[in-house]
Computed example of a mutant assay.
Amino acid sequence: MRLLFLALVALTAVLHLYIAWFEIFAWTSRGPVVFDTLPAELFEPTWQLAANQGVYNAFLAIGLIWSLLIRDTVWQRRIAFCFLGFVFIAGVAAAMTVSLRPGIFQMVPSGLALILLAVNSRMSGK
């Protein structure tokens, strides 16, 4: 179960590294393709906003990667819980303000990891 938890944390980190790359470097080129329901002329004037948002997604990824590098399991769980919680909340916000699809991509891996963390913590008594 611990290995699955760590894999979900890693998956969530990789997802947010991709989101950060997309928002920082590919907003004007890939944005109109990915968000095809938005007008294409919207992407060029909003690239700075997207890049700023991408930095926040990079921070989420870095926090999750940091949690994977912590050897003390209690602190690893605490840091992972914090950043997984941030990601889950960001997914809820995305689902409410953008569309369900980007929210689901964030909520599912982070939510599953949070559930595994809770179950694992309950079973180990920590």
Score class of each variant (00 low, 15 high):
residue 6 L to W: 08
residue 7 A to V: 03
residue 7 A to Q: 00
residue 8 L to H: 06
residue 8 L to C: 05
residue 9 V to Y: 06
residue 9 V to L: 11
residue 11 L to Q: 07
residue 19 I to T: 14
residue 19 I to N: 08
residue 23 E to R: 03
residue 23 E to S: 09
residue 24 I to L: 12
residue 25 F to W: 09
residue 26 A to K: 14
residue 26 A to T: 03
residue 29 S to I: 14
residue 31 G to S: 11
residue 33 V to F: 03
residue 33 V to M: 01
residue 35 F to C: 01
residue 36 D to P: 00
residue 36 D to G: 13
residue 36 D to A: 14
residue 39 P to S: 14
residue 41 E to C: 02
residue 41 E to I: 00
residue 43 F to Y: 01
residue 43 F to S: 02
residue 45 P to M: 01
residue 47 W to V: 14
residue 47 W to Y: 13
residue 47 W to N: 12
residue 47 W to A: 15
residue 49 L to R: 03
residue 49 L to A: 10
residue 50 A to H: 02
residue 51 A to F: 02
residue 52 N to L: 11
residue 55 V to G: 11
residue 61 A to P: 03
residue 61 A to W: 06
residue 62 I to H: 10
residue 62 I to F: 15
residue 63 G to L: 09
residue 64 L to W: 06
residue 64 L to T: 07
residue 67 S to R: 06
residue 68 L to T: 08
residue 69 L to W: 10
residue 69 L to K: 05
residue 72 D to E: 15
residue 75 W to N: 14
residue 77 R to A: 15
residue 78 R to Q: 14
residue 81 F to M: 13
residue 83 F to Q: 05
residue 86 F to N: 06
residue 87 V to H: 04
residue 87 V to A: 12
residue 89 I to R: 02
residue 90 A to K: 05
residue 90 A to G: 05
residue 94 A to R: 10
residue 94 A to C: 11
residue 99 S to P: 03
residue 99 S to W: 06
residue 102 P to F: 08
residue 103 G to I: 04
residue 104 I to Y: 05
residue 106 Q to P: 04
residue 107 M to E: 04
residue 108 V to Y: 01
residue 109 P to K: 11
residue 112 L to P: 01
residue 112 L to C: 13
residue 115 I to K: 01
residue 117 L to M: 13
residue 117 L to I: 00
residue 117 L to E: 03
residue 119 V to D: 01
residue 122 R to N: 12
residue 123 M to P: 00
residue 125 G to F: 07
residue 125 G to E: 07
